[in-house]
Write a protein that binds this DNA or RNA. Structure first.
Lengths: 209, 209
DNA sequence: CAATTTGAACTGACTGGTCAGTGCAAAAAC
DNA sequence: GTTTTTGCACTGACCAGTCAGTTCAAATTG
């Protein structure tokens, strides 16, 4: 009897090629931007012929869009997992936010190029992949918004907070601080950076000691 | 070659042309990115012949670099002014940070395209104008760092805060929240957005009412 | 077992188009 | 009469996307 034959999603070989192309594309586009990165460069970095890029992806833009979706999927899964685990283990929503900050830092630590690219392309308008970008942005922020909403509902947060704006601000805080960390103080430990952001989150900036 | 600005012979007419080119370039590059924007487009949008672009700027990259410097000069002047005015009028350093948040929002409200472009290009590496970018980034963050340092020195802030990281986080918070505001909730008033960010800054997120 | 067939995956030279930057003579502005 | 702008043709490099041909592992056959 036939085992579960050709899995929907392509052969293992093909999947490996696509993965190599993602990895090549993400660093090049993070460094240079989408338009300045050529398909030839991506193929060369991936150790693959140019035609292979077009065998696996309909176009340069499509490769990029799928890369975005792939990366954001990883990020949101990680954020969601951190928040859920914290709450499940009896933590408060502030604890959950803190756990998400850490999860965000861990992600950025592991995939700095993707983060760079995400920030750089996120607010572009008039681009072909605009709708993808919208979805992909909302996905990440929505996880934070969810925790904020829960906190407001259970009285842990003030009802006066502006959920979407606060979520965006928190995401921005982590993104920019982390990019700065990676770009200008790469020696710092993740715990160190996390501690600094925790302090800011919990308003423990003011006041001596 | 005397390409530097503030040339003795810099006529008012020439300055006006350069200004038109800045304005055309900033919106186009914000929308499309540097590489995807052509010199022909910039010239057309500015209502000027292509040759004029090259009469006024050595190259497309140089035009962009001078544009960056010009815009960041405006931003930092505004931030510095806000902080100094607050302190001069007897405000605390927290008040100064708050005033800088507002000044940042006012700037972004007035020059959204520049802000977009700034964020998009700020963490690019391997680009011709890398050194310019470094200067330009440090300029904006340094103003915030200055206020944090003063606050630590006079005991208003904990000595444990990580000044560079906290400054970057604050800048990120404002940038991302503001871009979100402009992109997705443009109806909101500046005061509204400012209030939400103030609350976050002062740790008044937790706790009922 | 080989030997052969099949087809998905991959290759890289090639094409058609785009674009930064040049050159220059003439007009306009100052 | 000097500076600045115009208009436009031109070049050379670069690049996204194509396509006819190749590879190779697994399936089929004898």
């Amino acid at each position: 009897m036939e085992s579960s034959s050709t899995t929907p999603g392509g052969s293992a070989r093909r999947e490996a090629t696509r993965q190599k192309l993602y990895e090549a594309a993400v660093t090049l586009i993070a460094e240079q931007g989408f338009s300045a990165t050529t398909v030839d460069e991506i193929a060369e970095r991936a150790g693959v012929a140019k035609g292979t890029v077009y065998y696996n992806f309909a176009s340069k833009s499509v490769l990029f869009e799928e890369l975005l979706r792939h990366g954001v999927g990883l990020l949101t899964a990680s954020l969601r997992e951190a928040a859920e685990r914290t709450v499940r283990e009896g933590g408060t929503r502030v604890d959950a936010l803190d756990a998400m900050i850490r999860a965000g830092l861990v992600f950025i630590d592991r995939y700095p190029a993707f983060t760079q690219l995400y920030v750089a392309e996120l607010w572009r308008t008039n681009r072909a992949w605009n709708s993808t970008l919208l979805v992909v942005r909302q996905q990440a922020v929505a996880v934070v918004e969810g925790v904020l909403h829960e906190g407001v509902a259970n009285g842990e947060f003030s009802e006066e907070i502006d959920v979407p704006l606060t979520a965006a601000a928190l995401v921005g805080m982590v993104l920019v601080a982390a990019l700065d960390w990676k770009s200008f103080q790469p020696g710092r430990s993740l715990d160190d950076v996390h501690a600094a952001l925790s302090r800011l989150l919990q308003g423990r900036v003011s006041g001596r000691r």
